[in-house]
């Protein structure tokens, strides 16, 4: 049985009559990256704030390291690193000075932790530049440095690639992966950028309007994605009749007179092509296709796609 580092049971947050998070049950396994995927306003940040005790849940329970968060904050929180919403630092101080304050409060006396964290995110140690002069990307890097500085076992990162340029995104992705693979950290990461989650996460939770719609490993989700052969033909209805009668299948969909989707990919495509041509149907195109994660996201959220 898997050991859950983070687990919620029936986690709910209501603001007045508005339900922000509803009956959420997430399970983050040890040493894995869990991607919480959802549109803006889906309830990702509220969920993370409740996990960290920053927002009190209306009902439900948060368990971290197998212990309820409520009442154990002093034991649990020092073992967690987090980045919630925008990076929060003192604008009149440098990056090193900012980290020094939080290191002092965490009881970290050695400057090597500050230096190490800054090096990890490619920010200079003892630089004179003030936080207020930082670009959004540098601020985000500093927030990640703060999250990892005390070498926590669990990282909770809310949209960590916000504001980063493409190279920065690749770097952050790479070191988050390394933190998990090489150092055995358990990471919960939220994003509205589907491609990021699919590139990084081992397990995925899809949240929409505060409800967790799906929670599975990336591998399982990929297996669930529908595969099909897409034919563009001169007469889709006639083609469907021929395929149905000769190959004994009903697993098809016609979108208009030209487009036919055959979902039984075990059938011999070359033979189908030949049969259709022999029956006077022109085949303009035939492709083996697979739904993307975005298609799957659209399907289960019943709405528009995600970035």
């Amino acid at each position: 049985m898997d050991e859950y580092m983070i687990e919620t049971r029936g986690l709910t947050k209501k603001y007045g009559s508005q339900v922000s998070v509803s009956n959420l049950n997430i399970h983050v396994k040890k040493g894995r990256i869990y991607g919480l995927l959802g549109r803006n306003g889906a309830g990702k940040t509220t969920t993370m704030r409740m996990l960290l005790g920053l927002t009190a849940p209306t009902s439900g329970e948060v368990k971290i390291f197998g212990h309820p968060m409520q009442g154990n904050e002093n034991k649990i929180l020092p073992r967690i690193g987090c980045l919630i919403e925008s990076p929060g630092f003192y604008p009149n101080l440098t990056a090193t000075e900012n980290l020094k304050i939080f290191a002092e409060l965490r009881g970290i006396n050695s400057p090597k932790y500050i230096r190490g964290a800054l090096e990890l995110v490619n920010l200079p140690y003892r630089d004179k530049k003030l936080f207020s002069e930082y670009s959004l990307g540098m601020k985000q890097r500093l927030a990640i440095a703060l999250a990892v500085m005390h070498e926590p076992e669990v990282l909770i990162l809310d949209e960590p690639i916000n504001g980063l340029d493409p190279i920065g995104i690749a770097e952050v992705r790479s070191f988050i992966r390394e933190l998990c693979d090489a150092r055995g950290k358990t990471i919960l990461i939220s994003s509205h950028i589907l491609s990021e989650i699919s590139l990084l996460a081992d397990d995925i939770g899809i949240i929409d309007r505060g409800v967790l719609l799906e929670e599975e490993s990336l591998k399982e989700l990929e297996e669930k994605n529908a595969k099909f052969v897409h034919f563009i033909v001169s007469d889709a209805n006639k083609a469907a009749q021929i395929i149905g009668s000769l190959f004994q299948t009903k697993s098809m969909r016609i979108s208009d007179n030209c487009n036919l989707y055959l979902y039984d990919t075990s059938l011999p495509t070359a033979k189908i092509n030949r049969t259709l041509i022999e029956n006077g149907i022109d085949i303009k195109e035939a492709h083996l296709c697979e739904d993307t994660l975005e298609d799957y996201f659209m399907k289960i959220t019943g709405g528009e796609g995600i970035a």
């Binding site: 960290l52 005790g53 920053l54 929180l77 990076p87 630092f89 604008p91």
Partner: peptide
């Protein structure tokens, strides 16, 4: 106002302080 203006209260609470 310092913590409010620089949004650092969340960092302090999650230490926890």
């Amino acid at each position: 106002f310092m913590e409010r203006d620089s949004d650092t209260l969340k960092n302090l609470h999650t230490i926890p302080v």
